[in-house]
Design a protein around this nucleic acid. Structure first.
Lengths: 179, 179
DNA sequence: AGTATATCCGAGTGGAAAAGTCGGAATAGC
DNA sequence: GCTATTCCGACTTTTCCACTCGGATATACT
């Protein structure tokens, strides 16, 4: 549930990549797509979003590329996600910001309380975290040693991985998923 | 972003409805679909999920229907959402529960930290709230008076509303949505 | 017994959005 | 001029959501 789209995933990864290479001048999408194993033409789309909203700067021509417009410390993850995935609202009933003409059902308003809470929780989390913070995290406590799976070598090496795609439905994870 | 599907929305509304009529014996789907203005055949599907996981009990035959298997106070919203929308994981990289064989990319793990945080935030919110609590909320502080929009009368009266559908894209809400 | 009211179940469908592709134009360094 | 790059719009493909449909089964009431 509540899944973040690949736009969000890839976009964040691009931003983290840029944060790590901050101050080194423009970094090309080709480099990024190689480093992150993501399809370049698709990245072009995402990056446009980030640039249009002023999160990154572009340099055209040879040796061109992208770089963060601000220091990673000054970029909140809420901004990033909002640019990539649109306003943070788990449900139409609980939009970010103003509560406008949205909900014509009174009943809806009861459950609306729930969505609002969820939205606030997400928002708070994203508001707290900066890009710098995220970029600095190398081995978060969440990842136990045994999770360091060694993939079938070569399987992921020479081909661009449609990452989320592949993993999404095969997921043999929580026993919860008996669906 | 992070949108809850109609399964989640409708399902929660059904549960709230049932909570409000708790102790009155079985309540038929026809009644619920009328009260909540939701398509009955679709509800049948959702309700199956809730029943299979033991959240509600069914009584077949005439005067049959559904009722909560436990007191609303003893039903956490996390359970409800999990049943309806699957495990609470904003991203494959951050599944609920164990961190199993999931992520074959090391880079992914940096951003994974973010998804994990978000998941935890959502989870905490849902874990805290009980169905009873949600059902008791009538006019949450979130809803200002001017939000009490009077819809074009009759427009929503005689026809089952494809609610989310209609509202999802027309949303004239946050100025953020200049996309 | 028969009928009306329910749940139950699996399959099927239409449409929309997500995910990614493609071709080419503009720009800048060499 | 050649090459590396951003830039842009349109196009395709796939997937999944939201919902329908037809019928089977079960129970209450008359």
């Amino acid at each position: 549930m509540m899944r973040v789209s690949t736009k969000g995933e890839y976009g964040v990864r691009v931003m983290v990549d840029l944060a790590r290479h901050h101050g080194e001048g423009p970094r090309s999408l080709t480099d990024i797509s190689l480093a992150e194993q993501l399809p370049l033409p698709y990245l072009e789309q995402l990056v446009k979003l980030l640039r249009d909203k002023g999160l990154i700067l572009s340099t055209r021509g040879a040796h061109g590329g992208y770089q963060l417009s601000r220091h990673p410390k000054d970029i909140r993850m809420s901004e990033v996600i909002r640019v990539l995935e649109g306003p943070i609202a788990p449900m139409i009933c609980a939009p970010e910001g103003e509560m406008d003409v949205v909900c014509d059902r009174l009943e809806c308003c009861s459950t609306q309380y729930l969505w609002a809470k969820i939205r606030d929780a997400i928002l708070h989390t994203l508001e707290q975290m900066t890009l710098a913070e995220l970029a600095s995290v190398t081995t978060p406590e969440r990842i136990p040693a045994h999770a360091q799976v060694v993939p079938a070598p070569g399987a992921t090496a020479h081909k661009l991985i449609p990452l989320a795609q592949v993993l999404l439905r095969s997921s043999p994870l929580s026993a919860d998923e008996s669906e």
